[in-house]
Write a protein that binds this DNA or RNA. Sequence first.
DNA 1: GAGTTTGATTTCAAAAATGGAACAATTGCC
DNA 2: GGCAATTGTTCCATTTTTGAAATCAAACTC
Lengths: 275, 275
Amino acid sequence: MEQLPSLDDLSLFVDVAREGGLAGAARRTGATVPTISRKMTALERQMGRKLFERGPRGYALTAEGRAVLEQLQDLKDVQARLMRSLGQPDAVRVRVTAGAWTASYLARRLAQVWDKDDPWRLEFVESTRMLDIARRDADIGIRSRRPDQPWLAGRRTSKVEFAVYAASDDVRGFVALSADGPLTPSVRWVREQHGAEIITTACEEGTLVDLAVAGVGRVVMPTFVAKDVQGLKQVGPIIPELSHDEWLVCHHEARHDPPIRAALEAVASLLTSKP
Amino acid sequence: MEQLPSLDDLSLFVDVAREGGLAGAARRTGATVPTISRKMTALERQMGRKLFERGPRGYALTAEGRAVLEQLQDLKDVQARLMRSLGQPDAVRVRVTAGAWTASYLARRLAQVWDKDDPWRLEFVESTRMLDIARRDADIGIRSRRPDQPWLAGRRTSKVEFAVYAASDDVRGFVALSADGPLTPSVRWVREQHGAEIITTACEEGTLVDLAVAGVGRVVMPTFVAKDVQGLKQVGPIIPELSHDEWLVCHHEARHDPPIRAALEAVASLLTSKP
DNA sequence: GAGTTTGATTTCAAAAATGGAACAATTGCC
DNA sequence: GGCAATTGTTCCATTTTTGAAATCAAACTC
């Protein structure tokens, strides 16, 4: 047997074996008896094995046929499972890549725009790993610049502004992201302006916030995120160098993909309504 | 989707998705690009879902397509496994139903006629459970009478004779099968002739032999089995009432099934050469 | 910016698969 | 023993599927 017989023919073989004949298999599958007859003889020819004993009361498996049937058990299992699952497929997963700050903001508010019965589901993917929307590694991206690639569609959502926050006015020193990670503008700004005052570093934004709340140091973070954090107060002005627009980006063609479109609208509504 | 799409089409869908386009899938599967193109549009129509985004560089999955692809992962696994396993299928298992005595005898001598590279393998199935060769529950049966059903083919192998054995001449009493099991002629004979002398009972013939070797009692068993047992000597004459012919039986059509035929010959050669 | 490459669709004739009807073989039933 | 019922196969006309060639479209290349 140089190559695998058609999966459909193998599946049909199982039906014939289980029904004990062509007539039963025909009733079950909807194909006609002559068709199945020809398919089974062709299958035997292709596999070079006699699979059935033809008797006047139907088909009986040969010893070889029984051995083959055993191998095909899973095939029918998979088929049955697909039958059920393809009917109502899992909610489509729309992958969104966003910085940790924005991801956190989205995650907190997602319930406002998403219901568990919606036909899509957000899936946050690391934006540190360089992900390419053009290559469809992610469906939706949140970036700080208008995309210049022509095949990406972008829309502005709102302005992002950074300020310094701390548990109280008298906290000195800063907590900052470690320099191993991606050097975003805000990371660079802290190191340039207050490099000497950095008390401790962390590798995740969430940890940074926890440290700041605990009074370990001041933290530079976006205003729209800080609003959600209990126990932090703004202790400095908006940092003009770090202010930028925020762009919602997706592949040009993906915009016409209904689930992606729905997710895009939901994310956009959250981000543009940012105070 | 009222009914499951063809497994072959689903498999093809996975190929297209993995290759990222029709051209790649065509190279992989051997079908031509137009064919695959038509099949994929038909699949989308049947499933009522847009699975791909057609771009000038090939096909890209939609979010829905990705969800479907995930569901189909196993399908390809099964297909790959079948590819390997159907090539060299397991050795065919020929099911033989025999009484415990004969099964034991066959098992001991099987190596004389069977090699692990043979394309068939004997599988002993309980003969206590009523198995019907006509219904193909077993392929080969060993019986004590010529079969009277016309669709069973039988051949005589040799005469089976019973006698009383014991560890030594001075062992008194008998060990016998318990009366719960099937009442074979030899079981009935012991209970009728020596019912009062039964020391202990067992439910398996093997245990019975062990008991007899240990000197617990005498045992009624076939001469051809007793020859294999170290430590037992014949302590009585052949019991004429229990002598009978032994018949090798199989379904008439199964005789033409090469592996069954081979097994049949092997078993027959063992049984007819019985001393 | 014209030409080449890559990838998909459409067209059309040939090949293959299909289903109905006729036929054959056997079982089961009076 | 004959008749109806069940099960498969063969034959043939029809439908469907297929592949080669032509066409189209976008994207690289020089």
